[in-house]
């Protein structure tokens, strides 16, 4: 199976195939290599991951599409991207949606459906852990819908304001 995995703000197409006893790992169109993941019987709950001749101990915890891993003296988050989400993000972006950079609460809403706005115009103020951020219009256009009202909370990457579809030139 092949999926995109995001790590450190980079994206990689990863393929895993084969049988449980004989698995192969491939990044993009590179050479597939034998791979195995085993769980050590120790009090640490550490796994050992091996690709070809390289191996390392690793501790992991996963939830949903996120995998949190600790290895090489640091912690790294990996996100396994669902292909439909991936395609939707790629196409739906196009400056029609203003998304939240972090989870938080809506403090103030400055626009409403039908308003004509200019690029950079403040549309909403949000607050996260007592830090205020202004959400500005990504381009000139018309507001289609504001999705959250003051006092409501939202997650990271939530669509806060949608603009009316712009005709492609």
């Amino acid at each position: 199976m092949r999926r995109r995995i995001d790590i450190e703000n980079q994206q990689y197409e990863v393929t895993v195939f084969g049988r449980p006893e004989e698995r192969f790992f491939q990044v993009a169109d590179g050479a597939p290599k034998p791979v195995s993941l085993s769980l050590e019987e120790n009090e640490n709950d550490a796994h050992t991951i091996q690709i070809g001749n390289n191996r390392t101990q690793i501790r992991m915890a996963a939830k949903g599409e996120m995998v949190y891993a600790s290895a090489f003296g640091r912690t790294v988050s990996l996100c396994i991207v669902d292909p439909v989400e991936q395609a939707a993000q790629a196409s739906g972006g196009r400056g029609n949606k203003a998304r939240s950079p972090m989870p938080g609460t809506v403090v103030e809403v400055n626009v409403t459906a039908g308003d004509h706005i200019k690029k950079g115009q403040p549309m909403m103020t949000i607050e996260s852990m007592k830090i205020l951020t202004v959400i500005s219009a990504p381009r000139d256009g018309e507001v289609l819908q504001v999705h959250f009202e003051p006092g409501k909370t939202f997650d990271k990457n939530a669509v806060l304001v949608t603009l009316v579809e712009k005709e492609e030139l």
């Binding site: 395609a87 790629a90 739906g92």
Partner: peptide, 14 residues
């Protein structure tokens, strides 16, 4: 309804 061919193909795969 999807916004792009790529999204449509990903959805068909799903």
């Amino acid at each position: 309804a999807v916004d792009s061919e790529q999204e449509g193909i990903a959805l068909v795969r799903e």
